[in-house]
């Protein structure tokens, strides 16, 4: 039964968990390691799976915590420059070198702004904007009320709006 859960619920989450880890450490190899660690730790608690109310949310929380721990222990410097894997997949519709440079600067600015968000706001923002989760799903994942999710997202978006528009002036 647990093995079935693993293949049906947990394993398909790997990409989402990877992106969550990546949003914290901004490094693909580290993000893969984090997800791998999370899976191994989760597997070691296979007997407890039936007691976990929302296994999916549990995986997100565990990945987030592991990524934050990894950040602390390795003191990974959050990127000031956009990572190579994103750079290669971005800006395909912009042709001139000037535009590309301009876009790179904008992305760097955006990531810096996101990285400066408080942890809770950053997580809510990530799950809503990238994973397209509903407020209810985010609330379950991060173990907070729906109201708190909305407040955090409101603050995160407000901060980004202010920073992005303010830098331009």
């Amino acid at each position: 039964m647990s093995r079935d859960k693993f293949h049906r619920i947990i394993l398909p989450l790997k990409d989402k968990l990877f992106r969550l880890a990546w949003s914290i450490v901004r490094d693909s190899a580290e993000a893969e390691d984090i997800v791998q660690d999370m899976f191994v730790k989760l597997w070691s608690k296979i007997d407890e799976w039936d007691n976990i109310e929302n296994l999916e949310a549990y995986c997100f929380r565990a990945t987030k915590n592991l990524a934050l721990d990894r950040m602390e222990s390795l003191e990974i410097r959050k990127t000031e420059n956009i990572s190579p894997e994103l750079e290669s997949s971005t800006f395909t519709d912009r042709v001139t070198p000037f535009n590309k440079l301009e876009e790179t600067e904008r992305y760097t600015l955006l990531y810096n702004c996101i990285d400066q968000l408080p942890e809770k706001q950053k997580m809510v923002f990530q799950l809503r904007e990238i994973e397209g989760m509903s407020y209810r799903e985010i609330a379950d994942t991060l173990q907070m009320s729906e109201e708190m999710v909305k407040v955090s997202l409101f603050r995160a978006r407000g901060r980004l709006k202010k920073q992005l528009s303010g830098r331009r002036e």
Partner: peptide, 17 residues
Amino acid sequence: PYVTLFTYRRDLQALKP
């Protein structure tokens, strides 16, 4: 100024291990 805020997510969504 908000272009990247709405365009970066598609690139991030495509990010995979």
